[in-house]
Design a protein around this nucleic acid. Sequence first.
DNA 1: TACTAGATTATCT
DNA 2: GATAATCTAGTAT
Length: 201
Amino acid sequence: MFDFSNSLKEDYYCQSPEFIARDLIGAVFVWKNIDGFTLAGKIVETEAYLAVGDLASHSAPGLTKRNSPMFMRGGALYVYKIYGVHHCINVVTENEGVGSAVLIRAMEPLEGIETMHRNRPNCKHKLALCKGPGNLARAFGFTLKHNRLQLYSPNLFIVKHSETAEEEIQTGKRIGIAKSVDLPLRFFLRNSKSVSGNSRK
DNA sequence: TACTAGATTATCT
DNA sequence: GATAATCTAGTAT
């Protein structure tokens, strides 16, 4: 259904995290898991984490064991565990050694809905399956063992299905961080029911 | 509907 | 020993 031959390639991910975070809104994320199930969703919410001038970025203190995937060449998957409970999924951006990434915060499920429901038995509504970074990782079954995977592989890739209109993309402050709070680096699809943090305002 | 507490662990200081 | 790019259940309103 979603074709690897149309997918974003290695060079695409060497662009800036601000550009990619915005550009990926509306794109389709595809993951063929170890059991042969295809899981896919439309990206509706992202956040950029910069290499310089961004104290909220994991890369800000410099290279460590945890953040080392952020310093890989763009196109790697960076997975980390947060609050001892949840996993978060990032797309590494820019060139090797730079240290930037885009956090994928939410998606609208398109394919593999049964599998997502199985991964999240308490989630009733389809549009809430991948709402929020922790939920998204759980629905897709991503854990630390998927860290450093390449995003331009036949079983893991992103396709730009169609262009998303400028006015459909909203910008705002990032969620859940304590430093560099005011940077406008969160992007989300206007009116999507799968965007997280909509209950507050 | 709105707020708060608690879960739970890899990683860093 | 402290912290964290979150989520959910529970209690209060």
